[in-house]
Simulated assay, not measured.
Amino acid sequence: MPPRLNPYISFDGDARQAMEFYQGVFGGTLELNTYGDFGGQDAGDAADRIMHGMLETAGGFTLMGADTPPGAGHRPGNNIAVSLSGDDSAELGGYWEALCAGGTVTVPLEKQMWGDVFGTCTDRFGITWLVNISGSGN
């Protein structure tokens, strides 16, 4: 398998809900492992929290996520965004609609000065998504 770059997102106790939401948006196979799966009773209150989650889609997307480890402290920031791009306007437009549900649109998905259809939104989990649909006629 060649190297790949994929986002890994930290959550503050709602990784399961977020990863299941993303599976609903993109489809694919979701694997979730809890701290309890690996730490047994030593995991304590974090036993049901997600230690590692990975969503792999038929379209080649891989998204990973987990709840912040116990004692590490969750520090959300504005230094992460996930970008989706391609030329399939129906597929990308569908992702856009699903990601925006319950979130906030910061740039509407519309034709931009560089000729592509582009938009940004922040989903209901606070993750920023950039969608770019390339090509003419979009």
Rank of each mutant, 00 (worst) to 15 (best):
M1Q: 09
P2F: 03
N6I: 02
P7A: 14
F11H: 06
F11S: 03
F11K: 03
F11N: 09
D14N: 15
A15D: 14
A15W: 11
R16G: 07
R16A: 15
R16T: 11
Q17I: 08
A18H: 07
M19S: 13
E20N: 07
G27N: 07
G28P: 09
G28F: 08
T29Y: 06
L30Q: 04
L30F: 02
E31L: 14
N33Q: 14
G36E: 13
F38I: 11
G39Y: 12
Q41C: 00
A43T: 10
A43I: 04
D45A: 14
A46E: 09
A46D: 10
D48Q: 14
I50C: 11
M51Y: 02
H52E: 01
E56T: 12
T57Q: 09
G59N: 10
G59V: 03
G60E: 00
F61H: 09
L63C: 05
L63V: 14
M64N: 00
D67L: 00
H74T: 05
H74N: 12
N79F: 10
S85E: 13
D88K: 08
A90S: 09
A90H: 15
L92G: 04
Y95H: 12
V105T: 11
T106F: 04
L109A: 04
E110M: 07
K111H: 05
D116M: 04
V117G: 07
F118K: 10
F118Q: 01
T120Y: 06
C121R: 00
C121N: 01
D123F: 02
T128R: 12
W129T: 04
W129S: 06
I133Y: 06
S134F: 15
